[in-house]
Computed example of a mutant assay.
Amino acid sequence: MAKKATKRQRIDEKVAAGMDHITAEKEVIMEIATEQVEKLKAQQAREERKVEAEAVSVIREEFPDEWTHAMGVARDRLDARRIKRAAAASKPRGDAHAAETDAPSAPGVPDDVAGDTEQAYPY
């Protein structure tokens, strides 16, 4: 893994690319702050996953009846989602079927009146 450029190196690279020094320094500081925020968000997410795992453990140990009920509800929800996805996947897609009509097509007769028994245009 390549060593990350220092703050000074990053600023110098931006200045060499044609940016003025103040703007370059400002951008590097913003980049560093953004990186720190992302690290903190990732750390917070890891901590939240640990807490949730421990909460599951507590519920499983101290409330076994509720745990069994919750597992059944979770299975039902997952099954319902799976069935819904399968039903959606089996439906025909596209406009190919929408263009088909039950009316017979006759040459020289507009499609919107092809199946009508009355004459489309009074002559």
Rank of each mutant, 00 (worst) to 15 (best):
A88E: 09
S57N: 09
A80N: 09
E38R: 12
T6R: 05
E47I: 08
E35A: 08
V37Y: 13
K3L: 12
S90N: 05
M19D: 04
K3R: 13
K4E: 15
Q44R: 14
A33P: 03
D102P: 00
A74G: 05
E38C: 05
H69Y: 13
I83A: 11
E47K: 12
M71I: 03
I22S: 04
D95T: 06
P104I: 07
Y121W: 14
P64H: 03
T6V: 01
R46F: 12
A70E: 04
M30H: 11
V28F: 00
A86N: 05
A55I: 05
K26M: 06
E25M: 08
G108R: 02
D12L: 11
K7F: 15
D65K: 10
A70W: 00
T117K: 13
E48N: 12
T6E: 05
H97P: 01
Y121R: 13
R8F: 10
K4W: 09
M19V: 05
P104W: 12
S57K: 06
I22G: 00
K41C: 08
Y121D: 14
K91W: 03
P64Q: 03
K26A: 08
R46E: 15
S105Q: 14
E52I: 11
K4I: 09
V73S: 00
R77W: 13
T23K: 11
A96T: 06
S90F: 01
E13W: 11
A42I: 00
A55T: 04
K3Y: 13
